[in-house]
Amino acid sequence: MALFDTIRSILGTNATADATRDADPEDLFGMSTAYVTMEADLGYDHCGEAALCFSDVDSTAFQDAVDEVEAILDAGELETGTGYHQYADDHGYRWFVLEDDDPEDLVTSVHFAADTFVENGFGSRLLAAVFGFEKPEQSAYWIYSFRRGAYYPFVPAGDHERDQQAEFKLQSVLDGELEVESDESYWYPLWPDARGRHPWE
């Protein structure tokens, strides 16, 4: 199965069919306290970036929703200094990538962007929100699947390998604080285009 089809299957149609609860952008606020736990209990600093991944659709109404998200993020950049840019990956997905030294601002910006899509009737186009963390020699991510309404950990190691021990450690510490996906088959890795980069690069 091609990588594009795998992503679509795991985060898309299969996840929709197998959804255990409705996705809710309010779930993203759980990451506000998770940032503290990641640093205090696990030694991870936030990487200063987070991202929202969504699938495109060729319609004027959808482009209007994207424009509205951009307007909200523009306003946020003036108010909080949260920068952003868009990224289109090789699999046909688009990303809003947020940059800020304050993790609370990142959470708020991702939430506003996701909520705007939902309010405009395009919640089904949302795939994932990704929050990045780092410590010496290791990067880790919490991924929120909008199709499953749950988070899961992703810790890349080497070339398309995963540090499953670290992922299970993240699950054990954060489960209860975050709504963690119980079915590990949905812990889909979002590999970056090149080793050592973020999934949104």
Rank of each mutant, 00 (worst) to 15 (best):
F154Q: 05
F4Q: 15
Y84W: 15
V57Q: 10
A140I: 09
A114K: 01
A17S: 08
F154N: 05
T13C: 04
W200G: 00
Q138G: 07
G43E: 04
R147C: 05
A61M: 07
G30V: 02
L3F: 15
G132V: 03
M1H: 13
S139F: 10
D64H: 10
R94D: 12
S182R: 14
G149Y: 00
A166N: 07
L174C: 12
S55C: 03
A23W: 01
D22P: 01
L178P: 02
F131Y: 13
P156C: 09
G123V: 01
A194N: 13
P199Q: 10
D24K: 01
A194S: 12
E134M: 08
A65R: 01
G132D: 04
A15E: 02
S109Y: 03
A166I: 06
P136K: 05
L98P: 00
S32P: 01
S9A: 14
V57W: 00
E137G: 09
A75T: 09
F4W: 11
T116P: 01
T60S: 13
L3E: 15
R125G: 00
T13W: 11
M38C: 09
G30C: 04
E179S: 05
V69G: 02
W191V: 14
L106H: 05
E179I: 04
E39N: 14
A75R: 04
D175R: 11
A61W: 07
F154Y: 15
E177S: 14
G196K: 07
A114W: 00
L174D: 01
R195Q: 14
F154L: 08
D64I: 08
L52S: 04
M1P: 12
G158I: 06
L78W: 03
S145D: 07
A71R: 07
S185P: 01
R125H: 13
I10P: 00
S145I: 02
W200V: 02
F117V: 01
A157L: 11
A150F: 02
Q63E: 13
D24V: 00
D64F: 05
F112G: 02
G30N: 06
L11N: 03
T108Q: 10
A34E: 02
P153E: 07
I10R: 06
V173T: 15
E104N: 15
N120M: 10
E177K: 12
G196T: 11
P25G: 04
R197F: 15
N120L: 05
L170E: 04
R21C: 01
V66T: 06
V118A: 05
L78G: 08
A15K: 03
E26Q: 10
S172A: 15
M31I: 12
F96M: 07
W187Y: 10
L174M: 14
Y152C: 03
T37C: 07
A50L: 09
F133V: 08
D90H: 09
G43K: 06
W191D: 08
L3K: 13
G158E: 07
D41W: 08
D5Q: 13
H160N: 12
L170Q: 08
K135M: 11
P189I: 11
D193C: 06
V97Y: 03
E49S: 14
D5Y: 11
P189Y: 09
Q86C: 12
D175H: 10
T20Y: 02
E201C: 05
L28S: 02
V36K: 14
T20G: 12
Y44S: 04
I10F: 08
H111K: 08
E79D: 15
E49K: 09
W187A: 07
Q165I: 13
R195C: 08
D163F: 06
D56W: 12
H111T: 11
Q164E: 15
V130W: 00
H46R: 09
